[in-house]
Design a protein around this nucleic acid. Structure first.
Lengths: 117, 117
DNA sequence: CGGGATCCTAATAGATACTG
DNA sequence: CAGTATCTATTAGGATCCCG
């Protein structure tokens, strides 16, 4: 059986570390539904995210080439975000997780209660 | 378009928060390969995890009913872990992510480099 | 409008020592 | 062997103010 000593080299970890943060996955799902969206639109859709975290999250997703950022140099500024092809290719896998989560959430919550008692 | 204001009620977030931590997913994949494993076996396989984090991670997975913990009351103690049916049902979805990650890691690393410069 | 810069707090993770 | 307990370091995340 192979060893998992050098965690950093694992491609999976690189992905999970990114989409496993507090907001990335949510932003991806929102952008899928909204197609092309401005910063403020995303912010309004995910009401509980802070401006800073939305900025940070968008930048990280852009760095990974999962979303595209287009700036319109005008006053007031306008910035639009949309999924790249790579980003779109990730979404089916996320949806597969979403389905599993929806189906199993009830059972998991039951388990947690039993475990706590 | 629906709003994602109350993040906590989202079943997806509950799942991603759990498997998106530093070690859970790795432990699940290791247990899949190893079938039934003792604490020390898992620890040897994932060399870089601390004893504390392995304990914490196993407990969380057990609470969610994803793994089963069996204690043999003897000296020295022996504790075995294995996937539950629910845990097994999650794994295909993780593998789907693993595949995507493996295929796209090269491109993502390229993107990150370009973005940094 | 879409951020950037700074400060601060809370949550996570690791090291170490100890135990039934 | 399989953990606990405690302490410390690191990181994630939020609040606030500012700016072109």
């Amino acid at each position: 059986m192979k060893k998992y000593s050098n965690v950093e080299s694992c491609p999976v970890r690189n992905v999970i570390d990114r989409i496993g943060d507090k907001w990335s996955m949510l932003v991806l799902l929102v952008l899928e539904e909204g197609d092309v969206m401005r910063f403020s639109e995303i912010h309004k859709t995910i009401e509980t995210i802070s401006q800073k975290m939305l900025t940070v999250t968008l930048k990280a997703l852009e760095a990974d080439g999962l979303i595209n950022r287009e700036v319109y140099p005008q006053i007031p500024p306008k910035v639009e975000y949309k999924l790249t092809e790579r980003g779109k290719s990730l979404l089916p896998h996320l949806h597969s997780l979403v389905s599993w989560a929806a189906e199993n959430m009830g059972g998991i919550k039951e388990s947690r209660k039993l475990f706590a008692s």
